[in-house]
């Protein structure tokens, strides 16, 4: 996974992972129109995620959710200067090929869309463009990294406004990393087997104590306090999906979440930015969602 020094090199791991490094400490916002993208950029988003419907609408309207119309993606790229991400269905390598030629900056192989392949994820090494993938636990994260993901986001439960699953997933991933660091080599062989992940990656994490790629959190973040909690739990940054544009005052809420992520450990700032934001997204409790409708279980 390391490249030797040579003349100009495009699409190397270092370049792919590098963009995620630059997004750290930032907020990536879901947008479905160029106008929303403008609001997100003006509010201080580090990147926008272009998609056709936010997860809350995918959840309520049902049906198959797919990659967005290229026209929509073009219009969002034309509107903003910050990086633009877009979602491809799990395993749908042709949607990914399309997104790459459209000139987006990052592809999210996302469980929020309907999976295109119930066995395989996209072989992400085949692409010059970097990928971010969701994970609910360390084994899943490592399988995605092994497939070439250059950034991981814990999944949470998208479109709910309920942060509990996001909390569970970031705690799980970081807890499992901590456990690896205390293991001897013979135990690491077993851990790799149990995590269903390559031993080399498991051993690397055991020695460094962190993922080799940036780890963001996603899925259910709706308030500045939610975002700051994710940062205090060890996330490098936050994705906010439905939480902004399904709320009463998107401009102000978006800007408040940006500030809460920068000052995630300063309760005074978080209190200040939490004032008078209007209605948060109504949301749905994860425990009220019947199992077949859970998005976070997609991915294998």
């Amino acid at each position: 996974m390391t490249e030797s020094n040579s003349a100009e090199q495009f699409g190397s791991s270092r370049v792919k992972r590098g963009l995620a490094e630059m997004l750290k400490g930032g907020v990536i916002m879901d947008v479905v129109t160029a106008a929303q993208a403008r609001i997100a950029e003006d509010a201080g988003a580090v990147a926008v995620m272009a998609l056709e419907r936010v997860p809350a609408d995918i959840r309520s309207q049902g049906g198959v959710a797919r990659m967005s119309d290229p026209d929509l993606i073009d219009s969002i790229i034309a509107e903003v200067n910050i990086p633009v991400m877009a979602k491809a269905r799990i395993g749908h390598f042709v949607e990914a090929q399309i997104l790459e030629v459209l000139g987006v900056d990052y592809i999210d192989e996302s469980e929020v869309l309907s999976p295109a392949d119930y066995k395989n994820h996209i072989d992400k090494w085949n692409f010059t463009i970097p990928f971010v993938c969701g994970a609910t636990n360390l084994g899943e994260a490592l399988r995605r990294i092994n497939e070439g993901a250059a950034m991981i986001r814990s999944k949470g439960e998208a479109g709910t406004g309920d942060v509990s699953e996001a909390t569970k997933h970031i705690r799980t991933i970081n807890g499992e990393i901590k456990r690896l660091t205390s293991m001897s080599r013979d135990e690491l062989y077993v851990a790799a087997k149990e995590l269903q992940a390559p031993y080399e990656l498991v051993a690397e994490i055991a020695s460094t104590g962190k993922l080799p790629v940036v780890l963001f959190t996603a899925g259910g973040v709706a308030t500045p306090a939610d975002a700051a909690m994710m940062m205090q739990l060890g996330a490098d940054g936050v994705f906010v999906g439905s939480g902004i544009f399904k709320s009463g005052n998107p401009e102000q809420r978006a800007a408040a979440i940006v500030k809460a992520v920068t000052f995630y450990d300063d309760a005074k700032v978080i209190a200040e930015v939490s004032r008078g934001l209007g209605e948060a997204m109504v949301g749905i409790n994860v425990s009220d969602i019947p199992a077949p409708h859970l998005l976070s279980t997609r991915g294998w």
């Binding site: 490249e3 020094n5 040579s6 003349a7 100009e8 090199q9 495009f10 699409g11 190397s12 270092r14 370049v15 792919k16 590098g18 963009l19 790229i77 200067n81 990086p83 790459e100 000139g103 987006v104 900056d105 990052y106 010059t128 463009i129 970097p130």
Partner: peptide, 15 residues
């Protein structure tokens, strides 16, 4: 000039 090379696929490393 900000973002002078284009989108991420134009990002690169060199000596």
């Amino acid at each position: 000039r900000r973002n002078a090379f284009g989108s991420q696929t134009a990002s690169f490393e060199t000596d």
